[in-house]
Each structure stands twice: as C-alpha cells, then as structure tokens.
C-alpha cells in the first residue's frame, strides 16, 4: 500500500484484530473490512493537502513536563480498588497463568 493506495484487506483486518486482542467471526471480518475500507477511502482526501515541512500536532496545548510538589498525599483505598477486581489473592490482582497452558 503506497501512501494511501490499495484498500485494506481482510487479512489486514484479521492481523489488526490480533494486535488489538479481539477475536472476530468470519461474518465480522467481512463486515468490518468493508466498513474500515470505506472510512479509509474517505480519509484519503487528506492526500490532496501539501504537508511538506508541516510539523505534526499531537496535542493542542504546549504543556511539557508538568510537575507537582513532591509531597505525600492520600492515595485511593486499597480494599476499594481490590474490591472492584475480578479476582484477588493475598491483596494482589489474580490472573490465570501468563505463559503456556494450565499445568
């Protein structure tokens, strides 16, 4: 795909779904491929704009390195935070095994 040449393919959508940790059915793959392609086709109109030498804007405010005084403040309540978790053990967030299958 050159600048914004070729259309987004079904394989692209499947690849991106993997990156985004989403599982799509065959029907969803089909539907989303068409819908994303339509939006990207519309967005291709920005190619007509000359942006040579234009600095990109990531944020509307020129703020950098916003610091606060290094003073101790109350944090959020640990029990309240853990109370919202799907699973907890020994005051920690409990998750299934990170690597491989269950032993």
């Amino acid at each position: 795909m050159g600048a914004m040449g070729g259309r987004i393919s079904r394989d692209d959508v499947a690849y991106v779904a993997g990156l985004a940790r989403l599982e799509l059915s065959e029907d969803e793959l089909e539907l989303f491929t068409g819908q994303l392609a339509a939006v990207l086709d519309h967005a291709a109109d920005v190619e007509a704009l000359d942006t040579e030498g234009v600095v990109p804007t990531a944020h509307p405010l020129p703020l950098v390195n916003v610091l606060r005084d290094d003073v101790v403040r109350p944090g959020l309540d640990r029990d309240e935070i853990l109370g919202a978790a799907p699973a907890v053990e020994e005051q920690r967030f409990r998750v299934p095994p990170v690597l491989g299958e269950l032993p």
């Binding site: 940790r21 599982e23 935070i81 978790a85 799907p86 967030f93 299934p96 990170v98 491989g100 269950l102």
Partner: peptide
C-alpha cells in the same frame, strides 16, 4: 480483565484478555 470490569475466564491470561 485484570484489575476491574468484566473478565471472561480462560486458561491463560492472553486468552482471558481476548
């Protein structure tokens, strides 16, 4: 699915995320 909100259980954390 780790700290708050919905969790759909699965054998590994990666599968649970998805």
């Amino acid at each position: 699915g780790v700290r708050y909100g919905l969790r759909v259980e699965a054998p590994t954390t990666g599968a649970m995320n998805v």
